[in-house]
Design a binder for these strands. Structure first.
Length: 695
RNA sequence: GCUCCCGUAGCUCAGUGGAUAGAGCACCUGCCUCCUAAGCAGGGGGUCGCAGGUUCAAGUCCUGCCGGGGGCACCA
C-alpha cells in the first residue's frame, strides 16, 4: 500500500509530534496540547505553531533565563524541516513558526488517493474510529394537527443534516420522529371537527377525499386549528380563552388518553393523516426517518408506570403532603430559585394522578437509552422509493408479520434530541429525572440538540397580509403563532422557491424539456432552502425574510451548486484521456523528481498561491466534517462548502483549463479542478444538497 | 426575583486564546468573441455594547454594569 503520511491531517499530526519532541529534548519542557493554526494568508504558510511564546515563558519559569521567542522558533524550524512533505519552515513576526508544505507532494498524494479508491473519501481514518453501538437522532417531532411551517423545517433540516454528518463519519444512526398524537394540539383540532364543523369520522374522511390538491388535509387543519383558537376566545384574538369552552378540550383530551371511543378514533385519523402529509413535505427536502414512536403507545404499553416505579425506588421523586404542591409527586431541582409565584421543584404527577409531559418524556428517554426494560410493538408504516422501510409503533397485540427482518429500535449509545431552545428547562428536568434512575453516564448519553427559533421579519408578515402594530413593526422579528395561523407553511415556501427556480432555469435553458426543467428547479429549491436554514449557527434566531430565502446569489445553496455545475461542464467537455494523463503526471510527482519540479514550478508561478489555496481548502473537508460533528454545528460544514465554492469560482475565472497550452500546467489545473469539484460535491451531499447537471 | 442566550461594518451574520477582525446583502465602478455572468475584480465602510481583570497574546476567558430576547405552569 502507498504510504499516506502526506495526507495533510497526518502531516500536521507528525509536525505536532516533532514540536513536542524538540521541546522536550532541547528545552526540557513537556508540552500539553500543541495548538496549530491555519495562517491567515497562504503566503504565510500552510500550518503555523505559535508555540515559541509559551516555550519562552516555560523556560523562564523553570530556569529564570530570559529567551527570545524568535530564537526558540529558529531551533524548532530546523527540526520541523526534517519532516518529509515539508518544503520549508519560516519564522515570522515575534516568533511564529510557519510550515510550508511541498505542494507537489501533497497534490500528488491527493491525486493518487482520488484515482486509487474512486471518489471515496471514506478511508481508514474514519472507519477506524467507528465506535460500537448506534446513535439515535430524534428530530421533526411536529404536533400532528396542522401543516408544517418553516420553524419545523429548521428542526428537520438541522436534525437530518446532523444525521448525514454522523453517517459520513461512519456512525450507524437511527432516526426517530416522535408523534404526540394524544396531546392538546390534536385535541383542539378534534374539537374543531366535532364542535365547530359537527363532523363524524366518516364526514372527515369524505372531506379529506374531496379536498383539492392545493389545499390538502394538513392545510385544512391549519385553518381549523386557528379557528378553534378564536372559538375558545369568542372570536377576540386578544382575549383569554373562556374556561367553559376549554372544558371541551379537556373532555376531548381525556377521551384520547382513554382510547377505544369515537373521539379517539377521529383523533387517530386526523393525526395519522397529518403525519402522512408531514412525511411527504419532508421527503421533498430529502428527509427520511426510520421510526415513528407514538405517544399513545407509550401510554398504553405502560412505559410511564415502569418509569414511575423506578423513580420512586431510587427516591428521585417525592410525594408532597403539604404546601402548594400537596398531593403531587415532584422532582426536586435547583435549576432556578423558588419564588412566591412558583416552586423550584417540578411536578411530575399531578394531584389528580395524571402524569405531566416531563414524566412521559422521562419514560420515553429511558426507552431511547435502552434503560427502561420495556419495548414497543411495531408495524411498517411506509416504504420509500428505494425500498427503505419506515416503521411506526403500535400497542396492538400480535405484531404484524412482514417479509424482512425488523431492525432493533431504541437503546442508543448516544441520543440527540433536536428541540428548540425554549424547551431547555424542561429538557434539563427530563435529563435529571432520567439520570436519577440510571447511571451518571446516562446523563452524558442524552444530548439536547438545541437551536433558536425561526421568527418572521416585519416585511415577511406584511407579505403574508398580516396586520402589525407599530410596536411590532419596529421589532427585528415577530414570533410565529400556530394559534393565530401566523406562519409560513413549509409546502407553500417550497412551492414558491421551486417556481422561482423554474423561471430561471427556463430562461437559461430553453433546450431542456419540461421534465428536466422541473427536476433541476427542484434540486435548486432544495439547495436554496436547506442552505438558508443551515448557514446560521444554532443559537442565532432566524428572522425569516422571503427575499433572502428566495435568493440564489451570494451566500446561498445555488451559488455552491453553480460552482459544482461549472466544474462538471468542464469535465463533460474534457476527454477522458486528458484526465488520466493529468492524474498520472501529477501522481507521478511523488516519485519522479522531474515531474515534481514541474508541478512545483506551476505553484511557484503566476497565481500559484491562489491555486494552492484551493488545493489546501479542498484538503480540509475532513476537518470541516469533524468540526460540524464534534461541536454539533452543521453551519460549519455549510460555511466550508461556501468557501470552497468561492475559491473554485475564482479558480474558474482565472484559468482556462481545456485551452491551457502548457502541458504541466494543464495537468495541474485538471487535477486541482477535479479535486475541488469532488470535495464540493461531497460537502454538499452531506448537507443534503444535490448538484444538477445544468442550471 | 432567579436562570439561559445574544450585543462585531448601514442591514443580516461568521469568527478552535494567536499575525492586518471576515462574509453575504445594500450602495458605487469595471469585466461576457472565452470551460454557463446564479459569476469575477475593485471601492467606501469597525472604539468587536461599556468598564475593570487574567494572559507573552482577549472579539474570544473571568467579574460587574448597560441594552435586547427566551425560560422559570397541577400546558405540551
Amino acid at each position: 500500500m502507498m504510504k499516506d503520511n502526506l495526507r495533510t491531517s497526518n502531516l500536521s499530526e507528525a509536525l505536532r509530534e516533532r514540536v513536542r519532541a524538540t521541546a522536550r529534548e532541547r528545552f526540557d519542557v513537556a508540552l500539553g496540547q500543541i495548538t496549530a493554526e491555519i495562517p491567515p494568508r497562504t503566503e504565510l504558510g500552510d500550518l503555523a505553531f505559535p508555540v515559541a511564546f509559551e516555550l519562552a515563558k516555560r523556560i523562564k519559569q523553570a530556569t529564570g533565563e530570559k529567551v527570545n521567542p524568535r530564537a526558540i522558533a529558529e531551533e524548532l524550524r530546523a527540526a520541523l524541516e526534517q519532516e518529509p512533505g515539508v518544503a520549508r519552515v519560516g519564522v515570522a513576526g515575534a516568533g511564529y513558526i510557519n510550515v510550508f508544505y511541498d505542494r507537489a507532494a501533497v497534490l500528488a498524494s491527493l491525486a493518487r488517493r482520488a484515482e486509487g479508491d474512486g471518489a471515496s473519501r471514506t478511508d481508514g481514518a474514519r472507519a477506524s474510529d467507528a465506535a460500537t453501538g448506534k446513535v439515535i437522532v430524534e428530530h421533526t417531532n411536529i404536533n400532528p394537527n396542522k401543516a408544517a411551517h418553516i420553524g419545523h423545517l429548521r428542526n428537520a433540516v438541522l436534525g437530518d443534516t446532523f444525521v448525514r454528518v454522523l453517517r459520513a463519519a461512519g456512525e450507524s444512526v437511527e432516526v426517530d420522529n416522535y408523534i404526540d398524537n394524544t396531546g392538546v394540539q390534536v385535541a383542539d383540532v378534534v374539537v374543531g371537527f366535532q364542535h365547530l364543523e359537527r363532523m363524524t369520522l366518516e364526514d372527515v374522511r369524505r372531506l379529506d377525499e374531496q379536498l383539492p390538491p392545493e389545499r390538502p388535509f394538513d392545510f385544512y387543519c391549519w385553518d381549523l386549528y386557528a379557528r378553534v383558537g378564536l372559538f375558545y376566545r369568542h372570536d377576540d384574538p386578544e382575549a383569554k380563552p373562556d374556561p367553559e369552552l376549554l372544558k371541551l378540550r379537556v373532555e376531548t383530551l381525556h377521551a384520547l388518553e382513554a382510547g377505544d371511543n369515537p373521539t379517539a378514533e377521529l383523533a387517530d385519523y386526523v393525526a395519522t393523516r397529518v403525519v402522512e402529509c408531514h412525511l411527504k413535505t419532508m421527503l421533498r427536502l430529502g428527509i427520511r426517518y426510520d421510526l415513528l414512536p407514538r405517544e399513545s403507545d407509550i401510554l398504553k404499553l405502560g412505559f410511564w408506570q415502569r418509569a414511575f416505579e423506578r423513580l420512586k425506588e431510587r427516591g428521585a421523586i417525592r410525594f408532597e403532603t403539604e404546601g402548594k404542591h400537596a398531593g403531587c409527586w415532584v422532582l426536586p431541582t435547583d435549576l432556578h430559585a423558588s419564588t412566591d409565584e412558583h416552586e423550584a421543584d417540578k411536578i411530575i404527577v399531578r394531584s389528580n394522578g395524571t402524569v405531566t409531559y416531563a414524566g412521559k418524556d422521562i419514560a420515553y428517554q429511558l426507552w431511547k437509552l435502552g434503560e427502561l426494560g420495556l419495548d414497543f410493538r411495531y408495524k411498517p408504516f411506509h416504504t420509500y422509493a428505494d425500498g427503505q422501510r419506515l416503521w411506526i409503533t403500535t400497542s396492538e397485540a400480535g405484531e404484524v408479520a412482514t417479509g424482512g427482518a425488523r431492525p432493533h429500535f431504541g437503546g442508543g449509545r448516544v441520543v440527540y434530541n433536536v428541540i428548540d431552545t425554549r424547551q431547555s428547562y424542561t429538557q434539563e428536568v427530563v435529563q435529571k429525572g432520567t439520570a436519577a434512575v440510571t447511571s451518571q453516564a446516562a446523563h452524558e448519553r442524552s444530548v439536547h440538540l438545541n437551536y433558536e427559533v425561526v421568527a418572521l421579519s416585519p416585511a415577511a408578515c406584511e407579505e403574508l397580509g398580516i396586520e402589525l402594530s407599530p410596536e411590532e413593526r419596529a421589532r427585528t422579528h415577530i414570533e410565529m403563532s400556530g394559534r393565530r395561523g401566523l406562519g409560513v407553511k413549509a409546502d407553500d415556501l417550497i412551492d414558491k422557491i421551486e417556481s422561482s427556480a423554474l423561471a430561471e432555469v427556463a430562461s437559461r435553458h430553453p433546450e431542456l424539456d419540461e421534465d428536466e426543467r422541473r427536476k433541476t428547479a427542484h434540486l435548486i429549491a432544495v439547495g436554496a432552502l436547506r442552505y438558508f436554514l443551515l448557514k446560521w449557527t444554532r443559537n442565532s434566531i432566524i428572522a425569516f425574510d422571503f427575499r433572502e430565502a428566495l435568493s440564489f446569489e451570494g451566500e446561498t445553496g445555488p451559488y455552491c451548486q453553480y460552482a459544482a455545475v461549472r466544474a462538471n461542464s468542464i469535465f463533460r467537455k474534457l476527454d477522458d484521456a486528458s484526465r488520466v494523463v493529468a492524474a498520472r503526471f501529477v501522481g507521478g510527482a511523488a516519485t519522479d523528481e522531474r515531474a515534481a519540479g514541474e508541478v512545483r514550478e506551476v505553484f511557484a508561478g503566476e497565481g500559484g498561491n491562489e491555486l494552492w489555496s484551493l488545493v489546501s481548502l479542498s484538503g480540509r473537508l475532513d476537518d470541516a466534517l469533524a468540526q460540524a460533528s464534534s461541536l454539533v454545528e452543521p453551519a460549519h460544514l455549510a460555511k466550508y462548502a461556501f468557501q470552497l465554492a468561492r475559491a473554485f469560482n475564482l479558480f474558474y475565472h482565472r484559468h482556462r483549463i481545456i485551452a491551457e497550452e502548457n502541458a504541466a500546467r494543464r495537468n495541474v489545473l485538471i487535477c486541482v479542478g477535479s479535486l475541488a469539484r469532488d470535495r464540493l460535491t461531497d460537502a454538499l451531499s452531506t448537507l443534503g444538497i444535490e448538484v444538477p447537471e445544468r442550471m
